[in-house]
């Protein structure tokens, strides 16, 4: 079980992920609504894993991922984006993302992916 930081610009998605992760026994370290806040919260909370939306205001998820990797090269980040943006996978993986989930997602699969990434 891990301490997780949820990054998404929509409250609905953050709440959904929070519920899913909580039901899987994880602890929610915190939430961020954009990339800048994500980097700041990562520094402050040092979570075990981050779920990171890709398209966000101020700083997008890929930039935020770079920022987090600059602070902690071992950071575990699972990218989370909408259908049709799968071409971002390669870029995110190159940048150091450990996993990728596509919205809309199903709870058991999200928990499985988080478990896999936490075990790395």
């Amino acid at each position: 079980m891990g301490k997780i930081l949820i990054v998404d610009d929509t409250l609905f998605m953050r709440t959904l992920l929070k519920n899913i992760l909580f039901s899987g026994g994880h602890t929610i370290a915190g939430e961020a609504g954009d990339g800048e806040e994500a980097v700041a919260k990562y520094k402050e909370l040092k979570p075990d894993l981050v779920t990171m939306d890709v398209v966000m205001p101020k700083m997008n998820g890929i930039e935020a991922l770079k920022g987090i990797k600059a602070i902690d090269p071992a950071a575990r980040v699972v990218m989370c984006t909408a259908v049709g943006q799968e071409q971002m996978v390669k870029l995110a993986i190159k940048t150091g993302a450990k996993g990728y989930i596509v919205k809309p997602f199903q709870a058991p699969k999200v928990l499985e992916e988080v478990k896999n990434v936490l075990s790395t």
Partner: peptide, 11 residues
């Protein structure tokens, strides 16, 4: 073809 490519939202 690639089947499956995504399952439950996970690549």
């Amino acid at each position: 073809f690639m089947s499956p490519a995504i399952k439950g939202g996970v690549m």
